[in-house]
Design a protein around this nucleic acid. Structure first.
Lengths: 142, 142
DNA sequence: TTTACACCCTCTAGCTACTGTAGGTTCAAG
DNA sequence: CTTGAACCTACAGTAGCTAGAGGGTGTAAA
């Protein structure tokens, strides 16, 4: 039987995060000690590891909920899990493409800056004049 | 004199977002019509364009605040603006490296999935077994 | 002039995925 | 039996918006 702190250490999660996952129903309510403290077994350890690993791969908590549900029903078709993973892959690829454009523009800004006064700063100039920009006007926060 | 809606359209920003920027002090309080509606001029248009462009490049609102301040003081040294941009570039490069690792693992998951039942799903299996994983145990959400 | 309707106003709450704090209780070692 | 680390609940805060309620304004046509 593990305490919440031990579980946290084993999975690289903060204690609060574990309680949060329980609160939003991602982890089941665990057993308690006589004094009311949470006590975990191996199944909870596995489940939390699954969640953390999926988070590290960038899956949203909603996606993880679906994946957990699929994992709990071994007879269901694999297609759904596959679709979720493909969706995630696509998102990652889109983000990478977007970041690459950003990197290019940032590099340009930085390389062209000569280091004088802000009046002639290339960095600020580029930010001021959107017309020189390579990236377009759509989504922020890729 | 522009209404907030016009300003929003011209800069590709939502009306609410403009009011939000004003609220957190990123944009100055504009003049008002007799009836109390916001009216903007060209300087506000420029300032908002600057903000949006910087946001598109992934700068945080705090970083943008600094950049705006530098932009308002043409005699200051350019070094600070340069440092902010370099910091941002570094962050973008880190995120890209991280996403590349994710992409690799996601591709592996997806390619190895044969499409049967979830019991044998490669996607779920990889998530379950962290030891097969190439990415390490640190930050989430790169 | 009235009326229609798009647009504007403030205020508040909600989103994701946590993280931190306050004020108190439990557990295990010594 | 005492100490101190670890636990408990409950609530507030983070970034950067976004959405909704409930009402007021501005302008153009009838």
């Amino acid at each position: 039987m593990l305490t919440i702190g031990t579980l946290a250490k084993r999975t690289g999660t903060k204690v609060q995060t574990i309680r949060y996952y329980e609160q939003i129903g991602l982890l089941p309510e665990p057993g308690r000690s006589a004094g009311g403290q949470r006590r975990y077994g191996d199944s909870e350890l596995d489940r939390l590891s699954f969640v953390r690993h999926a988070r590290q791969l960038g899956f949203s908590l909603d996606a993880i909920r679906e994946l957990l549900d699929l994992s709990d029903h071994p007879d269901k078709s694999c297609a759904e899990a596959d679709a979720i993973a493909r969706r995630q892959l696509k998102q990652v690829e889109q983000r990478m493409a977007r970041l690459e454009a950003l990197r290019t523009e940032l590099q340009r800004m930085v390389h062209e800056c000569s280091g004088g006064h802000t009046a002639d700063c290339r960095v600020l100039e580029v930010l001021r004049d959107h017309s020189e920009c390579l990236t377009d006007h759509d989504e922020i926060g890729a």
